[in-house]
Nucleic acid binder design. Structure first.
Length: 819
DNA sequence: TCATGTATGCTCTAGACAGCATGTC
DNA sequence: CTAGAGCATACATGA
């Protein structure tokens, strides 16, 4: 089947595909066409990675657009959204427009409405539905990439409910679901009323095997000798072997999957010997430049270690890296400059980074709930293996698991290489998932009664595959109770029928995309302040009441039971140098730390791990800063709750450090995190504080002063500065470091920037004329030109002494958002 | 006395979505 | 039945 022979596509698309080198559709693609993707037929394609799934989706979307429709492509990760957008933009020559919408990269709503293809994450789509994006009704085709992720207990339910909503809003919707090969693709097809295309076919042969002793044993019975002598490293030999085997004029790169960040880093360091010895002079030069670029991203140990390894052609990759780090590594690996990446599973699920040889070194990973090392899912291992084989470069890909003994070798064959991936199971019937989605479903008008709600939920995968009819209803009832008690939903029992409606706050919570439990926690914390002001422990009517015994789900962070009324400490007690409270105010001080802790203990924030010694450290902090916490501190004897509370305190301290201009490398050291983690925490906290601000404004009984405090705490996170720099840091091109230098030189505000002696400004900015001019201009100075101005050296000295003691030049602490 | 080798015990553990309003060097 | 790599420390050995 040739692309140009396909009908129903926009003019020239078939020919363009042939020009790209697609002479003939792959077998799964042909099956998809035969199943009717070009005619608006729904389809589930369960095929291996890199076997042309994207083209199936493109055929569906383009033909739908040709018929005057509009398509939505749902991805699981933000990074994939931009990757897909770039990919689809090649159709712009054929009159097809593309837009993206994710949390950190958003096109204007109206502009989006005019796009033919929109790429978005599942959460973003959910949010757009909740906020009533008008173009949702116009969709004629929706593609769900990596649909097997409905199995994920945290994010799967969102995808599931979102697809159900889209299909409900638009009954004629063509649904194309792309899945890895899983055990029960037929059930997914059944759920989506779709045709099923299932195939193991791959355009590049994949050879899988296990290495033990002196050879790789492949599953086809063949062997490849790779001797490992005593004391030699198995992984290193395999990486070296791939590099020494020329195919198409070049040795092959490898991807090593390990089970922890630390292992990824040490593996990369070790492999440095293997890769470093095989570089050309030209590569060495380019790698040195790349290493410098990596060092420039962030001034931390992680960054330095990565750069050191990259200089020798080896890299590590995990979520502790800043996102610039990650893309630099990924790009250089695709360019064949980096020869080997040692990675945690981030890479298996992320953007496209194929390698000649994939080495799955660790096949077990620590899991606290499991109580030890848990074997990886078959699906996960298959996803890793699927990264083997670079199209156009390798005649075949190799995926090798490592064994230390013959028994393990046999086990690995049976467990992974000969095994089918697990069936996908919906995780919808759990409280955390339903709490959010039941509220949103009611608030967005998809259901107005309990029965309506259950009918709607009948359209989910869960309903399709469960054999326990009552469970979904039971959890739904528990959740409804919770939502009612917390004032998010109103129930009216009217004889037999029961009507459901979201309250004003319920609507707000749904639109803010908050977990209702987070909202309850935040509201309760903020109300504590209002109570403290008049010290009257009344108003039980709107109190937060925990749903007793309802937190049976394992992934539940646990209810925080507040007994109210006991005003949180008397204000005025001086707690030392860190205090930033509203001194002199009558109400208890609302400090940044208190607010950071409030949002950090919310189920929307991922907990930091408490290391040994942390328990003592933060218990101490807990007593020292007692007056600042919003809501009660759990008793030290309630082990689990107190532990969670301390973990949140650790996060809160990290955020406070960031807002106190503590250097990035100090923070990574102090909390045992990577630069990417800081950005993640700060981002989440910013989002939650913004939500808290909205909630505080919308709800009665919360002091107006609190809103101001929340905003200030958020702004300080946003800029990473102390209070006195907020004004300066708001000026474009002024970040936390420049703001501090200007301040030390006596320029304390935007207004000062407009009037200050230019020589002082230039001195504070270390003589960078271009930068200084831009800043003056951005501050609104009439005449920003610095022609003929000499930097004031005393200002420069003051600035240097004040901040940035490491003197690394002019760098801002840059933490990872793309520009 | 110091450098190096080896036994032993302790520590620590993957990932990443959302809002809003525009731009760190 | 249910972890195991990495690292610090302590101690042994050898020149």
């Amino acid at each position: 089947m040739e692309p140009s022979s396909l009908s129903g596509l926009p003019a020239g698309v078939g020919e363009a595909l042939e020009a790209e080198g697609v002479a003939e559709l792959y077998p799964p693609q042909q099956s998809a066409v035969e199943a009717g993707v070009l005619d608006g037929e729904s389809l589930v394609a369960a095929v291996p990675t890199a076997s042309g799934k994207t083209l199936i989706a493109e055929l569906a979307m383009l033909s739908s657009i040709q018929r005057g429709g509009k398509a939505l492509y749902i991805v699981p990760l933000r990074a994939l959204a931009s990757e897909k957008k770039t990919e689809f933009e090649r159709w712009e020559d054929h009159g097809v427009t593309v837009g993206v919408s994710t949390g950190n990269y958003d096109s204007d709503g109206e502009w989006l409405a005019s796009r033919d293809i929109i790429v978005a994450t599942s959460e973003k789509v959910d949010s757009l539905i909740r906020n009533g994006a008008p173009w949702i009704d116009d969709l004629t085709c929706v593609v769900s990439d990596e649909v097997h992720l409905v199995d994920d207990s945290h994010r799967g339910p969102t995808l599931e409910v979102t697809l159900a909503k889209l299909r409900k809003v638009n009954p004629g919707l063509q649904t194309v679901a792309l899945s890895a090969t899983v055990g029960n693709a037929d059930v997914i097809a059944d759920w989506l009323d779709a045709e099923l295309v299932e195939s193991e076919w791959r355009p590049i042969e994949l050879r899988t095997g296990v290495h033990f002793g002196n050879a790789i044993n492949f599953d086809d019975g063949s062997q490849r000798e790779v001797p490992v002598d005593r004391g030699e490293d198995q992984t290193a030999k395999l990486v070296g072997d791939a590099l020494d085997t020329e195919e198409g004029g070049q040795g092959g790169s490898s991807l090593v999957f390990v089970n922890s960040r630390r292992n990824a880093e040490s593996s990369a360091r070790k492999l440095t010997d293997v890769t470093g010895a095989r570089l050309t002079d030209g590569e060495r030069d380019r790698l040195r430049d790349l290493a410098d670029e990596i060092r420039g991203v962030s001034d931390t140990e992680t960054s330095e270690d990565l750069a050191d390894a990259v200089e020798k052609g080896s890299a590590f990759h995990h979520a502790g890296l800043a996102s610039e780090h990650r893309s630099l590594v990924e790009d250089a690996f695709r360019d064949r400059l980096i020869k080997c990446i040692s990675a945690t599973p981030t890479l298996a699920a992320g953007v496209n980074t194929p390698a000649r040889r994939v080495i799955v070194r660790d096949w077990r990973r620590y899991d606290g709930e499991f109580g030890g090392m848990k074997p990886l899912d078959v699906l996960e291992v298959h996803q890793m293996c699927g990264r083997a084989g670079r199209p156009g470069l390798d005649p075949y890909g190799e995926a090798v698991l490592l064994a230390n003994d013959a028994d393990t070798r046999e086990e690995l064959f049976e467990r992974y290489l000969w095994a089918e991936a697990e069936p996908v199971r919906s995780k919808l019937a759990a409280e955390p998932a339903l709490r959010t989605h039941v509220l949103a479903t009611i608030a967005s008008g998809f259901a107005a009664t309990r029965e309506g709600l259950l009918t709607f939920l009948d359209n989910t995968l869960y309903a399709t595959q469960t054999d326990d009819e009552g469970r979904l209803a039971a959890v739904t009832d528990t959740v409804l109770e919770y939502l009612e008690v917390n004032g998010f939903v109103e129930r009216e029992r009217d004889g037999g029928a029961e009507s459901l409606a979201a309250t004003g706050i319920g609507h707000t919570v749904s639109r803010l995309y908050l977990d209702p439990m987070s909202a309850a926690e935040i509201l309760d914390g903020l109300r504590t302040v209002a109570d403290g002001a008049d010290a009257t422990p009344d108003a039980e009517g709107d109190a937060f009441v925990p749903a007793d015994g309802a937190d049976s789900d394992a992934d539940e962070p646990g209810f925080t039971t507040y007994t109210r009324g006991d005003a949180a400490g008397t204000a005025g007690e001086d707690d030392g140098e860190e205090s930033e409270g509203a001194a002199g105010s009558d109400s208890p001080a609302v400090t940044p730390l208190g607010l950071y802790h409030l949002v950090s203990r919310t189920p929307d924030t991922y907990e930091l791990y408490l290391k040994s010694g942390d328990r003592e450290t933060y218990t101490e902090v807990c007593y020292e800063r007692e007056t600042e916490f919003l809501g009660d501190v759990p008793s030290e004897y309630e082990e689990v709750r107190f532990e969670d509370w301390l973990a949140a305190l650790k996060t809160a301290r990290l955020l406070e450090d960031w807002a106190n201009e503590v250097d990035e490398d100090r923070i990574t050291e102090r909390y045992g995190v990577g630069p990417g983690d800081i950005r993640g925490k700060v981002d989440t906290a910013e989002w939650l504080l913004r939500a808290a601000e909205t909630l505080a404004r919308d709800v009665e009984g919360i002091d107006g002063d609190v809103v101001v405090r929340v905003r200030e705490a958020r702004k300080r996170l946003e800029y990473g500065v102390r209070e006195e720099l907020l004004d300066l840091a708001g000026v474009r091109n002024v970040g936390r470091k420049r703001a501090r230098r200007l301040y030390e030189a006596g320029i304390e505000s935007r207004a000062d920037l407009r009037e200050a002696d230019k020589a002082v400004v230039l001195g504070a900015l270390r003589g960078r004329e271009r930068t200084a001019e831009r800043i003056l201009e951005n501050a609104g100075r009439e005449d920003p030109s610095l022609d003929g101005v000499d930097p004031d050296s005393s200002a420069s000295a003051a600035a240097t002494a004040g901040a940035d003691a490491d003197g690394d030049g002019d760098g801002q602490a840059s933490l990872g958002d793309f520009g």
